[in-house]
Design a binder for these strands. Structure first.
Length: 576
RNA sequence: GAUUGAUUAGCUCAGCAGGUAGAGCAUCUGCCUUUUAAGCAGGAGGUCCGGAGUUCGAGUCUCCGAUCAAUCACCA
């Protein structure tokens, strides 16, 4: 076995692996292990007076998280999918006969923290009062070769926790093993999605799937990822939204459709942005945005209660109350409240001037919509901590939204803001095909002006509207953000199992061939390379005596079991 | 992309106006027979992120690079 480059702990574990096999124990057995109880059930059902029958003979499996060996009695903490429990191993119970190998060798010496075992035994309470499993038999189920970081915990106080974010995100499996609260976040995430799904299904809306690879990335303003389809020889885009496809389904006659969709945006990454993220979009025929506002707040309230049993949720040092009804305020009223400016009816030039007076950075490519959005984003958004609907957006920033029924220049649109961040976005969908075509053309003009986020024109979408789409309300909500709010997570990386990261630095390219070609045996060539000799010139400069020592030392240290070269041989190598 | 900070044992972290690399846990060897984050004693374990420079001497100072984090910018 090639131990080069391994730490001592890893070498030890590989040695233990060999020894297990020599003893006839398969460290990775093929058959399953019969489990009849979880750690948490043992703890909750235990009773000193009236021990339930099923605790008299338990069989469970999990990972060894700590060991305390006291001669021929030992304690182990076992972690399964639900929690942890203490195991008690006693030599003469594990090995009733003369042969004490299973305890003295296999358990004490060849098992390590991180290994996965199955145990059978009975439940009891130790003198110290801890509910434990007295093990009568154990089975090695999987030997861990990579040492697990050791985290200790007592009375809620955690010692030596792994806090390195890079390790936690890159090796999420390790994070999940050693930081139990991490699992909770993801269990809650799934619960959020399930709760929403139930809410929609109860009303008879249909869960659907629409394309992720799209010839035209529509439905939002964002920079897409581009890929290429070989057979068709065309570019394809990863979707930035599923809006247009879902509306086509409403045209097709469904009453309500929804999709939990992965969207992709080729933009910056930070605490609240990941290149791929999950969005729920739902469209319901014969409804408008006022209906959707009530629908949305009920849905969010239901999620909060499903998760926490109350509408009040802790978020950092704040408490958010998701009790309905949420506050509603129009966008212009919000701007007036926080800036003092009444921007209704203002021209692009006026808006630019107002931005200047408010010290908001603007550039030439920004149209009216983006200017208003800049004012709102800069001066207002942060102020809305409790759930608030911002309603009635200017037409320029809402190209897929129906014009307001009574206020010119505005659209029937709302966003839900929580903790100063946009959570959901919704509107009465524009179903006038001619108006829609004009709005797309406006976007085209913005794009020509240099706005690289302006929407593409989707002619098939316009064609679908020409067949007639019923009045429809649509809503999109960021699942990652919702999960952040509901689990008190400060960054999106905490609610994604595998957040996008820069690739790990490539391992050094292993190339000892130059030495091999010059007659040095391969095993020694590798060691030369690993000890920092990467060229023949370097080798020539080396002191042969010292080099001999380095090589023999390496052989010993890493237990390679190679026959050491003679000093003369090594001298020869330096003279190649 | 900018600024600031970080990178030392498997893990958590010390270390200094430049002078032989430290602790706890984990690991190994003894002792210890129901412990409570960690029983006791002893041992082993490091390319101090990489490269160049200053110096008699660099983990420490300077420069370049890598990676990560925080803040900002960008992100309808």
């Amino acid at each position: 076995m090639d131990y080069i480059g391994l730490s001592e702990l890893e070498i030890q574990r590989r040695e233990s692996l060999k020894e297990l096999r020599n003893l006839g124990i398969d460290p990775y057995p093929a058959e399953g292990y019969h489990v009849n109880i979880y750690t948490t059930d043992i703890l909750s059902k235990f009773s000193d007076e009236n021990m339930p029958k099923n605790l008299k003979s338990v069989s469970l499996a999990g990972r060894i998280m700590s060991r305390r060996i006291m001669g021929n009695a030992s304690f182990v903490e076992l972690q399964d999918s639900k929690g942890r429990i203490q195991l008690y191993f006693k030599r003469d119970d594990i090995c009733p006969d003369e042969d004490k190998t299973m305890y003295n060798v296999v358990f004490k010496r060849l098992l390590d923290i991180g290994d996965i075992i199955g145990v059978k035994g009975f439940v009891f309470r130790t003198k110290m009062g801890e509910i434990s499993v007295h093990v009568t038999e154990f089975t090695v189920l999987s030997k861990a070769l990579h040492p697990l970081p050791i985290v200790k915990e007592k009375d809620g106080h955690v010692y030596d926790a792994v806090t390195d974010l890079e390790m936690r995100y890159r090796q999420r499996y390790v994070d999940l093993i050693i930081n139990p609260h991490v699992k909770d976040v993801f269990i809650k995430r799934t619960k959020i999605i399930n709760t929403m799904r139930e809410f929609f299904n109860e009303k008879g809306y249909l869960e659907v799937e629409t394309p992720i690879l799209q010839p035209i990335p529509g439905g939002a303003a964002a920079r897409p990822f581009i890929t290429h389809h070989n057979a068709l020889n065309i570019p394809l885009y990863l979707r930035i939204a599923n809006e247009l496809y879902l509306k086509k389904l409403i045209v097709g006659g469904f009453e309500g459709v929804y999709e939990f969709a992965k969207d992709f945006r080729n933009e910056g990454m930070d605490r609240t942005h990941n290149p791929e993220f999950t969005v729920l979009e739902i469209y319901v025929a014969y409804k408008d945005y006022l209906w959707m506002m009530e629908f949305t707040e009920k849905m969010v309230e239901k999620v909060a209660i499903a998760l926490h049993g109350t509408t009040k949720v802790k978020l950092g040092d704040k408490e958010i109350d998701f009790k309905t009804p949420f506050k509603r305020i129009s966008m212009y009223a919000a701007i007036k409240e926080y800036t003092g400016y009444d921007i209704s009816g203002k021209s692009e030039k006026d808006l630019r001037q107002i931005c200047k007076e408010l010290n908001i950075e603007v550039d030439e490519t920004m149209g009216k919509g983006k200017l208003v959005d800049a004012i709102f984003g800069e001066k207002c958004e942060d102020n809305f901590i409790q759930p608030t609907f911002i309603i009635d957006y200017p037409i320029e920033m809402s190209p897929l939204t129906k014009k307001h029924r009574s206020i010119p220049g505005l659209t029937e649109r709302f966003e839900l803001i929580v903790n100063g961040k946009e959570l959901a976005n919704s509107y009465s969908e524009l179903n006038d095909p001619i108006d829609q075509k004009e709005r797309f053309e406006d976007q085209l003009r913005l794009s020509e002006k240099g706005d690289d986020e302006a929407m593409f024109i989707d002619r098939d979408f316009i064609r679908s509207l020409e067949y007639g789409m019923p009045p429809t309300a649509g809503m999109g909500i960021g699942i990652d953000r919702l999960t952040m709010f509901m689990t008190d997570s400060p960054s999106i990386q905490d609610v994604l199992f595998f957040p996008q990261m820069r690739p790990e630095k490539k391992a050094e390219i292993f190339n000892e061939s130059i030495f091999v070609e010059n007659g040095i045996p391969e095993e020694w060539a590798k060691i030369l390379f690993k000890s920092g000799f990467t060229s023949l010139a370097q080798l020539k400069e080396a002191n042969p005596g010292k080099l001999h020592q380095i090589l023999c030392g390496w052989n010993k240290k890493h237990k390679l079991g190679l026959q050491n070269p003679t000093p003369e041989q090594v001298k020869q190598w330096t003279n190649i």
